[in-house]
Amino acid sequence: MPMSEYVASIRSRIGNAFLLLPGVTAVIRQGDRFMLARHRHSGDWSLIGGGVEPGEEPSDALLREVLEETGAHIRVRGIVGVYGGQPMMVTYPNGDQVGYVTTAYDCELLSPATPDPEELLELGWFERDAIQTLVRRHWIDRVIADSPNSN
C-alpha cells in the first residue's frame, strides 16, 4: 500500500526525518497458531497492521488494514496491549524514519486470506515456538507472549 495522503503531506515538509505515528496490529490466531505475514519491503515475518488515518477509529483502521493486506474479514475479540518505544522504530528503504505506537487486537479470522502482492510475500500460520525460529520483527515476540493462550 502506498503512503497515505496524510503521511505524504507531512513527509513533503519534513523529508525523511523521524515521525511518530499511531498504528494498529492484528493478532489473528486460532488456538495457539498465529497468522503472520512476510513483508515485501523487508522480507521479515510480522503481524498484520498499519497506520490509523486522521479521524479514523483504531478498530476501523484494523479492519481496513487486514482487508487491504489479505482480503480477509476479522472479528475483534479484545485488546492484547499497546506497544511502542525503540522496538517499534523503523527506517524504511527510502530513508523514512518512523516510530509507531500500536494497539494490538486479539482477532479471529472470518474469511479466507490471500496476501496482497504489493505489500506481502506470503502468509503463514505458526505456533508460538515456531515463531522464534523465523526471521521476524522482534517486537512481535512481546505481543505474542501477551496474547491469550487459546480461543
Rank of each mutant, 00 (worst) to 15 (best):
D141Y: 09
I48S: 00
R77N: 11
I74D: 07
E65I: 04
R64Q: 03
L62D: 02
D96E: 14
Q86W: 12
A130N: 03
A72T: 08
G49W: 01
M88L: 15
G84V: 06
W139V: 01
L120N: 05
G49L: 02
D96V: 13
T70N: 08
G81R: 03
E65C: 10
E57I: 11
R64C: 03
G81A: 05
P117E: 07
L109N: 11
D60I: 10
Y105I: 04
G50L: 02
G50C: 02
T91V: 15
Y105S: 03
V82E: 09
H73W: 14
Y100C: 00
G50P: 01
Y83L: 08
E57V: 12
P87R: 11
W139Y: 15
R137K: 15
A130H: 08
D96P: 00
T91A: 13
H41I: 15
E57G: 03
Q132L: 15
G43V: 10
H39S: 11
E108A: 03
E53G: 09
H39Y: 13
R136L: 11
H138Y: 12
Y83A: 04
L110H: 04
P87Q: 10
E68G: 09
S59N: 07
T102F: 09
V101R: 12
G95D: 10
L109K: 13
G78R: 02
M88N: 08
I74S: 02
L123T: 01
V101P: 02
